[in-house]
């Protein structure tokens, strides 16, 4: 158990470093800005208390905000992602329920389940993020297209990362 916590923290730091140093600095065509750090919220184990999850989300968003000089944008959307996570999990529960304290990984739940789960979390997070960033509903569909394309890319990144973790 201790080992897995240690590995989770290490993995989170790695995700943040990749996000801040690499992904924040790339730009394909103005539509695609992948944000993979939301995986930190996704991977917390099932038994993790909700209030602590929200605090983790808050801290994660704050770090990304501080590093990219945009106070509040990442923080508010990551906290929202943390808030909806239990609803998504309830909605996606297997017929005989989750195993107590099980990790929410591709290894345990399979590729399909993880892809749908990650897709929902990313979509909600990105929708909040891009609309808060633009801060207006004019050009609604253009922002929507940015949300969809960026979510697609983030999902690919997250699935590749998770697939790699599964192999190890």
């Amino acid at each position: 158990m201790d080992k897995s916590i240690f590995r989770y923290i290490l993995f989170s730091i790695l995700l943040l470093v990749i996000q801040i140093t690499v992904l924040n600095n790339i730009q394909f065509s103005g539509y695609v800005n992948p944000y993979i750090y939301v995986m930190i919220i996704m991977l917390l184990p099932l038994g993790f208390p909700q209030w602590a999850l929200l605090l983790t989300a808050f801290a994660t968003g704050l770090v990304v905000d501080a590093a990219s000089g945009t106070l509040g944008i990442h923080t508010s959307s990551t906290v929202l992602a943390g808030f909806v996570r239990p609803f998504i999990l309830t909605y996606m529960a297997p017929r005989d329920g989750y195993e107590q304290g099980a990790a929410l990984s591709m290894r345990i739940h399979g590729f399909r389940w993880f892809a749908v789960y990650a897709g929902w979390v990313i979509l909600i997070h990105h929708t909040a993020l891009f609309y808060i960033e633009v801060f207006r509903f004019a050009e609604f569909f253009r922002t929507f297209l940015r949300v969809l394309l960026s979510s697609g890319f983030s999902l690919i990144f997250v699935l590749l990362t998770e697939y790699y973790r599964k192999l190890r």
Binding site: W51, G72, V79, F83
Partner: peptide
């Protein structure tokens, strides 16, 4: 309640920043 507090704090960040 925790959610609302944290969200309020981040919106405050947004407005202040």
């Amino acid at each position: 309640i925790v959610f609302i507090i944290l969200e309020a704090v981040s919106v405050w960040f947004l407005v202040r920043a």
